[in-house]
Design a protein around this nucleic acid. Structure first.
Lengths: 345, 345
DNA sequence: CTGAAAGCGCTAACAA
DNA sequence: TTGTTAGCGCTTTCAG
């Protein structure tokens, strides 16, 4: 029987599994390995003829650089990490997409991890990942500011959807979207509206509630702040009763998931949307237009955020030192669909 | 001014960025580096007291192994790769989740890449990834069987949602789900139904159409096969007209996205679902229950597939050699929601 | 049970 | 322009 690699991956490589190294290429091209390295990495620093010969040899051997071996002397891996709290949360889809695009545009490979829920696991995984990447993107992180700063002290780190002092942060400017939404509702004759807040610990949740209150005050709308719920469809369903009892004609949900749950429950309770109640969400996630009526929502430029964050990570703010902090603030906008209408009455 | 790393990631590490190595730990513990390595990796092969001392030293220094450095001598990285064709396609969410779970359960880190569309880019990225992982999962790959086999010849590879000869493949058994669905429709009085197929090149698309035809034939239902569409919401909308003209009372869509698009368009055209037309999708993706009525669909055990595939990859089929081929066949099942009802007539 | 030494594949001074 | 020579941090025989 073969070796006893009980923990190693199965399906042993077939016979023809030869690892081609720089040495093989060098031998075939009749040069020194270091010359191969130069030819492949710094074109021009080598005689055109030999470079061509080397490239041909590499090609014919189907040579590919070993990223690990390269990383050792250089310290750079050309890999960037992205940590998300929940890979099945649609809010991240476009963030990932944007980050992916920006990363591969610059020749970096994106590596993803999720922390499921635990903030402790999030830190652990991030720290582990940190050792093998050139930089880290933290999307809506759950860990403490302190932990984030400690990571940022070791390698470049950019945070998305949260403001952390001393660390580069990308946060969408929700002011514009909220203002637009309040104006929209106000124009439709709504005077008293409700807000279903997200988890008390969430940075975004706090911020949304705050700005909303501010804006409603400014527009002379009465805002009823209900109890916070989990940022999920289930959370939204749970809030439906309270919303109905609030004596309002419109409701803001913490995010689209909550809004969708809310609508589902309302429909089942024969409350007409938007006839009896208008509903507005946040984010414009995938699926927000699957509902009937389709959801009116304050769209976050998710994809742009991801792209921006990754660009910031790779692009070199200044060209060496970290200017730290400060936010890019891509703008939000209201997307009007079917779930909002004239105030009843 | 500092160094000129114009292409390097920005936000230079703060002052306190010291890389703790095995040597630092060794010095602090007063032992040889090799002993540290042993103590940390093969507990028990070292004096209990010194092991404890070493662990304490490592802890106090916040030491973390450098995966690259470890990979060099061992050839193993404890990283596994997952290649998906489109990270924003909800079908993959649960596959990723399942794979992630299984991977981290065994101490592996999951790395994700997507190929966007191009089958060529898919192969390129997979080949690149292959060098830094211990194994590769290909979910619904677009590249050729030949290319897949060539990857599988170098490192362990498992394919999800496609049968590739000579390579371990995980494919859900849709027979059960289809049979159930046909029975469901038949029981509701439907006699003539339509099928909106997916892209002609897709392996799954072909298989679904084939088995569906077979089953309808068996159940004496008349099946009208319409023109294939893109596997998206837009594709579904495009098919709506043809469906209405087909003179059927129920329709199978290639997947949930198509089914959702179909329903959206039908609702706008004042065709009642399920009053006038019953709709069934495939997969049960995230959002399938956001619609009104919620979508009846043939659920694929996506998460289980991912878990199974990853387990197969890591678990050692046999314990050294590759038994290749063969499918696990997790079962599908019909999820009855609101989009199907009695045949009109 | 632990230390010494070689080497994984690649890069980067330093020579030539 | 190219070859030589050290390592990067870790694992792993081989001695002791």
């Amino acid at each position: 029987m073969p070796e006893e690699h009980s923990t190693a991956p199965a399906a042993a490589p077939a016979a023809g599994a030869e690892k081609v190294t720089i040495y093989d290429v060098a031998r075939l091209a009749g040069v020194n390995p270091s010359t191969v390295s130069r030819a492949l990495n710094q074109p021009g620093r080598v005689n055109a003829a030999t470079e061509k010969r080397i490239r041909a040899a590499a090609e014919s051997l189907d040579y590919r650089v070993n990223p690990m071996a390269r990383a050792l002397p250089t310290g750079r891996t050309s890999i960037v990490g992205l940590v998300v709290s929940d890979i099945t949360n649609p809010v991240f889809f476009d963030i990932v997409r944007g980050a992916e695009t920006a990363a591969s545009r610059q020749g970096y490979t994106l590596v993803l991890t999720e922390s499921e829920e635990s903030d402790q696991r999030e830190y652990e995984r991030a720290a582990q990942l940190l050792r093998m990447v050139d930089g880290l993107l933290l999307a809506t992180p759950r860990m403490s500011d302190e932990q984030i700063r400690s990571l940022a002290a070791q390698k470049p780190v950019v945070v998305v959807n949260r403001l952390v002092e001393g660390v580069r942060s990308i946060v969408p400017d929700i002011q514009a979207g909220i203002a637009e939404a309040v104006r929209h509702l106000s124009g439709l004759g709504h005077r008293r509206i409700a807000y279903v807040p997200g988890p008390p610990l969430s940075w975004t949740a706090g911020r949304r509630g705050e700005l909303l209150a501010q804006r409603c005050d400014w527009a002379q709308l009465e805002l009823v702040r209900l109890d916070p719920v989990a940022p999920t469809v289930a959370g939204g369903r749970a809030a439906a009763a309270a919303v109905r009892d609030a004596g309002v004609t419109a409701v803001f949900a913490y995010n689209d998931l909550v809004a969708i749950g809310l609508m589902q429950e309302l429909v089942e309770a024969r409350v007409g949307v938007p006839r009896d109640l208008s509903v507005i969400g946040f984010d414009d996630i995938f699926g927000a237009d699957f509902t009937t009526p389709a959801l009116t929502t304050i769209k976050s430029p998710l994809r742009e955020e991801g792209d921006l964050a990754m660009s910031a990570l790779l692009g070199g703010i200044g060209s060496g030192d970290a200017p730290a902090s400060s936010a890019f603030d891509p703008a939000t906008a209201l997307v009007v669909r079917g779930s909002t209408g004239p105030a009843r009455d």
